[in-house]
Design a protein around this nucleic acid. Sequence first.
DNA 1: CACCATGTTCCTTG
DNA 2: CCAAGGAACATGGT
Length: 283
Amino acid sequence: MPELPEVEVLVRHLAPRLEGRTIRSVAVPRRRAIEPWTPRKFGAYVRGTRIMAVTRRGKYLRFDLGRGAGPSECVLLGHLGMTGRMYLRPVGGALAPHVSVVFDLGEVEWVFEDARQFGGFFGNDRPLRHLGPEPLSEGFAAEDLSACLGASRQPIKPRLMDQSVVAGLGNIYASEALHDAGIAPDRETRSVDREERVRLWGAIREVLSEAVRLGEAASLDFAGDGIRDGLFYYGRASAAAEAPEERFRVYDRAGRPCYRCGRPIERFVQTGRSTFCCRACQR
DNA sequence: CACCATGTTCCTTG
DNA sequence: CCAAGGAACATGGT
């Protein structure tokens, strides 16, 4: 569950539930999630700390940890990889199949589950240093997007997915934003003119904030059995009702009609990833 | 069995 | 050193 909107919705879910709690102990059934720490060292790092703040930067979750009354003393970053999930549950539940890490918070447990194990935790903010600007921040202007895109010869879609250029867009929302802006994904970045960049800026903010809005409204079951609709996790009962058919306008819709012009959506591969677009609407 | 999957890092090539 | 592309990572779904 990994692009900016899902992480944002997850952070909003976790923050009020985690902030103020103290980590009593940690269990690490899958040590890949904490490497290069050993489970022992990871435990020493977090045990006894209080969770002061839960925030998001790009696709990373940031947990500021403190001991005692002072300001936070250390940082814990989390990344969901492709299949990571986080949720709280009452202590002593049955061990789910792909649990990587369990934090004992006293009355509840904070669980990190990750089938593919591409996600994990980090003990410093180094991963954040390479990140480009936050596309949803108030100060992020159209000129800022244009400046970070630059005059690269790289095609615009992989350019948008480069986390050091803009933080938070992944394979889904890069395709979605380009469709919204009417720009073909395989255009050279330097050929995208000023006016198009302004459109792209608006499109990025629109598709991301709309996805956050949908996720917030969807009454997600973070700890549920993990029915996924390609984005958020839904509990069983509500899955059919709440997974809107029109969640995406191009992503995973190859051969189906474009919502704008009716022509079939195309799929092709760019830098090893599927790209979806409408050849009529996107130039 | 083959292919596909919301991501990042490391390696190679130019 | 930089830019860009591809493989690897580990597992499950179709």
